[in-house]
Simulated scan of single mutants.
Amino acid sequence: MQRQLGTADRAARFYDQQVRSQLTSEMREFIGRQAMVFLATADAHGECDASFRAGPPGFVHVIDDRTLAYPEFRGNGVLASAGNMIENPHLGMLFVDFTHHHVGLHVNGVAHVYRDADLRGIHPGLPTDLAPGRSPEIWVHLTVEEAYIHCSKYIPHLEPAPRPATHELARPKDADYFTKPRMPQWASRP
């Protein structure tokens, strides 16, 4: 594709100047500030899945310049991302700063899924207070293969807002959101 569109030289410069085989200190600090990450996985047949994880800043724990770990808490039981990682351990992570520097960081590597106690046995310094009253069921441990910038050109500026209590939301429950007909009071408000 690069040859067809005439971008091979530009791409070669990008690989040479931007793509790293390990996290720089600036990348580690950036990850430590992030409260969300987008995940890209695929199963053994190449069927893709995109997902999102969030937590307090630093919930994706930087173990060292080649290793990250993040917790998985009890969810809907589907385990699409973790299931894909068992079949195909390649994981893509995209961290985006929407509020301050408007820049992103791609981190790609090989993931392994561990039970909480097993990974804590290997890395006892994992955080314990990520979600009050909840413990991770599993952890995803990523061995970094490459990390590189996602430029700021099209990253929108977003302002953090307080999250309303569930009973204050004028919308259906999550399980019904995309499956039930819309009522007029659920329509978006200007």
Rank of each mutant, 00 (worst) to 15 (best):
A12L: 13
F14E: 04
F14K: 04
F14N: 07
Y15A: 07
Y15D: 02
Y15I: 08
D16A: 15
D16P: 02
D16N: 14
D16R: 15
Q17S: 15
Q17F: 06
V19M: 14
V19C: 14
V19Q: 14
V19R: 13
R20G: 04
R20H: 14
S21Q: 07
Q22F: 04
Q22N: 06
Q22V: 01
T24Y: 04
T24E: 07
T24C: 11
E26G: 00
M27Y: 08
M27L: 03
R28K: 12
R28E: 06
R28Q: 15
E29R: 14
E29A: 15
E29W: 09
F30K: 09
F30N: 07
F30I: 13
G32C: 05
G32D: 09
R33S: 12
Q34S: 14
V37A: 11
F38C: 14
L39W: 05
A40Q: 04
A40H: 01
A40W: 01
D43V: 00
D43G: 00
D43M: 00
A44Y: 00
A44Q: 07
H45L: 00
E47Y: 05
E47H: 11
A50I: 15
A50N: 14
A50W: 10
F52C: 08
F52V: 13
R53C: 10
R53Y: 10
R53P: 03
A54W: 13
G55M: 10
G55N: 09
P56S: 09
P57H: 11
P57G: 08
P57M: 05
G58V: 08
F59V: 05
F59K: 03
V62D: 01
V62C: 02
I63N: 05
D64W: 09
D64F: 07
D64E: 12
D65F: 02
R66E: 03
T67F: 05
L68S: 04
L68C: 09
A69L: 02
A69H: 01
A69K: 02
Y70I: 03
Y70W: 15
Y70V: 03
Y70N: 06
E72S: 11
R74L: 11
R74T: 13
G75Y: 06
G75A: 09
N76T: 09
N76G: 13
N76Y: 12
N76H: 12
V78Y: 10
L79A: 12
L79T: 00
S81T: 15
A82P: 01
N84M: 07
I86G: 00
